[in-house]
Nucleic acid binder design. Sequence first.
DNA 1: AAAGGCCACCCATTTACTTCA
DNA 2: CGTGAAGTAAATGGGTGGCCT
Length: 254
Amino acid sequence: MTEGGEYSPAMMSSDPFLTMKKMKKSNHNKNNQRRFSDEQIKSLEMMFESETRLEPRKKVQLARELGLQPRQVAIWFQNKRARWKSKQLETEYNILRQNYDNLSSQFESLKKEKQALVSELQRLKEAMQKKTQDEERQCCRDQAVVALSSTDHESENEENRRRGPEEVRPEMEMEMKDEKGHHDHDDYDDDDGYNNNIKREYFGGFEEEPDHLMNIVEPADSCLTSSDDWRGFKSDTTLLDQSSNNYPWWDFWS
DNA sequence: AAAGGCCACCCATTTACTTCA
DNA sequence: CGTGAAGTAAATGGGTGGCCT
């Protein structure tokens, strides 16, 4: 359809003083045009570009120049504003949609990154457990050795008692101190101490335990999944038409 | 200050046309 | 070529707010 199309001559009225009342009924202007001419549209468009609302005096002047009723000019501006507004809305919608798509893809890559980190953490945890088990087995063997050697010590002590306290050897004094705690294989007698040792080995002196590390990850996850946080995300649901999107936001969490 | 008329605007809808399958 | 659906611009009518008397 061409803008500014006109009525056929057969439809022209012979009455040049057609009243507005009649014009309203017939939906024609005084030249019996259903649509304004290209020239008229051009002038109206130019005026609209400089100002979207017309002062009454300018309206009358423009109407006179274009051979239209001031009312027609006013209505043209009204309709033009409505068309312009709906175009603006469309533009804004497209911008918002673009932003949404960008955020969506950013979120996807972050999700993948997080998944990789969680897998890595899981792998490290398993390795740590395996090492713990190995060390425990080693510990049992060591304890057996200690038990065997302690029977030898008992026979030695018997001999020492016979000799008297002044004859206690220096190396024995050291061993007696050790039995009060905090030394050598005690780490292996005490589960916590042992585990701390392993953890230090794995986490390079960090005080954080693996579970704490897990806890660092988990809240971040729950934060992302929290609907409260997403409620804060400024998005107009009317603008972000989810129904037209093949990838709705709630699918992020699946 | 309250009431009423006038005017311009917005918005949803109608009308009259064109285009196209 | 005729026809009906879809699209569009011009116009209508109701509602509303600002201004003036």
